[in-house]
Write a protein that binds this DNA or RNA. Structure first.
Length: 211
DNA sequence: GACCAGGTCCTTG
DNA sequence: CAAGGACATGGT
């Protein structure tokens, strides 16, 4: 990673923090975060919220309950989040991983970040973004989430590094504080939804940071 | 109707 | 390793 990339990332992080301040994001419950992390793949959060409410109503809002639930019922309930068949499979794969490797979410919580991360990545359907979302927002760890929005924003600000290089850059720049990690990712998403379309990035406040 | 959403996996060249 | 397609519903 080049020095200038770190500097640019530092500027982005600071200006977004100044711009947005503290914002509330994601439910605190670990099980809900894990479920939401799967459901929100390539999907708007508003659709995920509806599915989460319905899961809750049917008592399917925990890893333990999903483990033994009927897959067809899960599919029906999460239909509104799209990719519902593969997501139902992913939810049950995640539940099986947690129950079989740790016995419970609470026991899983005792393990170091890198161990949990490697385990999550071994589950088919859980990639880096989903694993880091679970670690950052579910287990309150300092594992920074790189998503399409973050990639778009840093690109807009002139960072050349490939997407795979971004996580270590952010983790070098950010203070070792889980709350800062959560806030910074939330800022990225809020900012991108507001200003960075897929094709164009107009009236971008970050444009003024290049120089 | 076209295009996109807080990805991931699998197949090709 | 990069690129392209599949997975699918819902909102603009």
């Amino acid at each position: 990673m080049s020095v200038s990339s770190s500097v640019k990332v530092q500027r982005i992080v600071r200006s977004l923090a100044d711009h947005y301040g503290e914002i509330a994001w994601w439910p605190g419950d670990t099980d809900i975060v894990m479920i939401g992390a799967i459901l929100t793949q390539q999907t708007r959060w508003e659709n995920v919220e509806r599915a989460l409410l319905e899961l809750e109503g049917r008592g399917l809002d925990s890893i333990h309950s999903l483990f033994s639930a009927d897959k067809q019922e899960i599919e029906d309930v999460i239909r509104c989040t799209g990719f519902y068949r593969i997501k139902a499979q992913r939810l049950q794969s995640l539940a099986a991983h947690v129950m079989e490797s740790y016995g419970s979410v609470e026991h899983m919580r005792q393990f170091p970040t890198e161990i949990i991360r490697a385990g999550l990545l071994s589950v088919k359907g859980i990639g880096e973004e989903t694993a880091d979302s679970i670690l950052c927002f579910g287990f309150l760890r300092t594992s920074f989430v790189i998503d399409a929005y973050t990639d778009r924003i840093v690109r807009c600000a002139g960072v050349k590094d490939k997407r795979q290089e971004l996580k270590p850059i952010f983790e070098k720049v950010l203070p070792s504080d889980p709350k800062v990690y959560r806030q910074t990712h939330a800022h990225m998403v809020e900012y991108a939804k507001e200003y960075c379309g897929k094709k164009r990035c107009s009236e971008c406040i970050l444009m003024n940071l290049n120089g």
